[in-house]
Amino acid sequence: MPNDLTRLAAAIDGTCRIRGSFTLRSGITTNEYFDKYRFEGDPDLLREVAQAMVPLLPSDTDVVGGLELGGIPIATMVSSITGLPAIFVRKEAKTHGTCKLAEGGDFTGRTVTLIEDIVTTGGAVRDAAIALRELDGIVHTVVCAIDRSEPGQNVLDQIGLSTVSILTKADLDTARRV
């Protein structure tokens, strides 16, 4: 891993890995938790993550799509850096107002690169990609800050979606030990 990514991994891990008593979504209790919103709420780390994502964007990207909730601040920053328009993709369409799944500009017939903070199984990204495709968006790539998926767990390739990440869980674990 290049030195700048090693330093970024150490900064994210040092900011986000917290100790205490935590109950995970699965119901398991653990003494360690990775609070991803800590790097997204830190303007310097958020900017570094977004800058590291920019070269990973496919060249045909017309729009960046931030997934609710964690992908939205990153997509906003990537949009600001690149000048690409952004959309903000909900987990499900609103039932009031415009009743939209994706807020922001028009993405019909345009290539949307999805932006996510962490991918573990890819389920939420898969659902968003399928929904955007049904609305005539072209979606073939998700760029994430951290890929935590275990071998065989990421379902995105099953729908023709490539996953590109800045860091992996292994990178964070290695940075913690350094």
Rank of each mutant, 00 (worst) to 15 (best):
P73R: 02
P73K: 04
L84S: 05
E92F: 00
V112C: 05
T141H: 13
E92Q: 02
L161C: 13
E103P: 04
R126K: 14
S165D: 05
D147K: 00
N154F: 07
I72S: 11
E150L: 15
D157F: 08
A145M: 08
I166D: 00
P73C: 07
I72M: 13
R110D: 06
T113I: 06
M77Y: 08
D117T: 09
V89T: 00
K169R: 12
A86C: 10
A75T: 03
I118Y: 06
D136Y: 13
I115Q: 01
M77E: 15
E150I: 14
I159D: 12
V143H: 05
C144D: 08
I118W: 08
G105W: 03
A128H: 00
I146E: 08
T98G: 01
T141N: 11
D136R: 10
T141D: 15
V112Y: 01
G70C: 11
T76P: 08
A131G: 04
G71E: 06
L69P: 01
K91Q: 02
A145S: 10
L132I: 01
T82L: 15
S162N: 14
R110K: 13
T111Q: 10
I72H: 05
D136W: 12
H140A: 15
S165M: 09
L69M: 15
P73V: 09
L135M: 12
G97E: 02
V164A: 07
F88G: 04
T113R: 07
A128L: 02
C144P: 03
D106G: 13
S149A: 11
A86F: 02
L161R: 09
H140C: 12
S79T: 10
E92L: 00
E134R: 12
G123F: 10
V125T: 14
K169T: 15
L161K: 09
Q158D: 10
G105T: 09
A102F: 01
R126S: 11
V155N: 09
F88L: 13
T82V: 14
V125Y: 01
E116L: 14
D127R: 07
G152V: 13
L167Y: 02
M77P: 06
L156G: 07
G105K: 04
L69C: 11
R133C: 10
V119P: 09
V119L: 06
D136F: 14
